[in-house]
């Protein structure tokens, strides 16, 4: 990048014009007229912050001063070492060293520079961008060991999200590398469940849960026969509503006459059992026909209902109910 290259060229210049530039004060005085972007001057090569992936920042110390060589080169050992030391100033690795959060400031500046560079690339809407789990502010604080304010971190996240919206086909490698530093180690979609298989008897298995019930369903091609725990649908579920719930995945996709269903349900009450069957049947059906997933999602057969009985609290009669208010 600009500052880094500038710094590198400068350090090269320092090596060549050793006599001129080894005193830092002279250099800074000369360079005070430069624009603020070129402030990155140090005795070391500036750190490529955006490439690093380790949690803790690697620290590169400044080059050791070789006083003898310097002295010999300059004026043949006329001056002694004490004078040289007096003129020496240590320059920190980062130009933001004197800010309270140098790493964060560097990160922010480098990301802003990167965004300025790639701002003209075509973008896709935020909703269509690939889902990324960014590091939380806590994780970032631990990584940098700096007290980063939440609001500032969110400002950085804005930049990152904007970078993530670049059209995937035109996404520069540079940006991908830069974003890697701010992503969580595990990303959504990393863990993919094993695809279901149809066994040698033509059965597809699905498991579903609801409240405290759990159900296992096996689907085979057939003509609409249903057995749950060895009983027919009417014997097992007294209510018509529960029967419809149990086979809803098949009914909503007009597959009721195409498959035979065997189910095992346990735990909970009849509503829980019926709705656990819904999920189990839907999963088994997806093994047979994966293309039905959107239709099943619209029918509400994909998402597990996470609601459970709320726990009772002390001082309450039930979860939320308070004892009757008595005047005295």
């Amino acid at each position: 990048m600009v500052c880094r290259k500038f710094a590198q060229s400068l350090s090269r210049a320092v090596d060549t014009f050793g006599s001129q530039s080894w005193t830092q004060c002279a250099r800074t005085a000369r360079r005070s007229l430069q624009p603020p972007t070129s402030r990155c001057i140090s005795t070391t090569v500036s750190r490529p912050a955006e490439i690093e992936t380790e949690i803790q920042e690697p620290f590169t110390a400044a080059k050791p001063f070789d006083f003898e060589a310097e002295i010999g080169r300059k004026d043949g050992g006329k001056k002694d070492g004490k004078n040289i030391l007096r003129t020496l100033r240590v320059v920190p690795a980062s130009p933001s060293y004197f800010s309270a959060k140098p790493t964060f400031t560097d990160d922010f500046l480098s990301l802003s520079a990167l965004l300025r560079k790639v701002a003209t690339l075509p973008t896709i809407p935020n909703a269509e961008a690939p889902k990324v789990a960014w590091k939380t502010v806590e994780q970032y604080r631990i990584m940098t060991n700096e007290p980063v304010k939440t609001q500032r971190f969110h400002k950085m996240l804005h930049i990152l999200r904007r970078l993530n919206c670049i059209h995937p086909q035109l996404m520069p490698e540079e940006v991908v590398e830069a974003m890697k530093r701010y992503k969580k180690p595990s990303q959504p979609g990393d863990v993919k469940p094993k695809p279901g298989v149809i066994d040698e008897l033509g059965r597809a298995k699905g498991v579903g849960r609801r409240k405290t019930s759990s159900a296992v369903a096996w689907l085979v091609e057939g003509e609409g026969e249903v057995l749950i725990n060895g009983q027919s649908l009417t014997e097992f579920f007294g209510r018509l509503h529960h029967r419809e719930s149990a086979v809803w995945a098949l009914k909503a996709t007009q597959r009721l006459d195409k498959y035979n269903l065997f189910g095992l349900v346990q735990g909970g009450g009849s509503t829980g059992q019926a709705e656990a069957m819904t999920l189990a049947v839907a999963k088994a059906l997806l093994v047979h026909e994966p293309a039905l997933k959107p239709a099943l999602r619209r029918a509400g057969c994909i998402t597990r209902d996470p609601r459970k009985v709320e726990r009772k609290k002390p001082g309450h009669v039930k979860a939320r109910k308070m004892p009757t208010w008595v005047k005295r």
Binding site: R243, V247, K251
Partner: peptide, 13 residues
């Protein structure tokens, strides 16, 4: 056919 099979299945075969 659709209605008949649906009701037939829901009525426990």
């Amino acid at each position: 056919d659709g209605l008949v099979t649906e009701k037939w299945s829901l009525a426990g075969m």
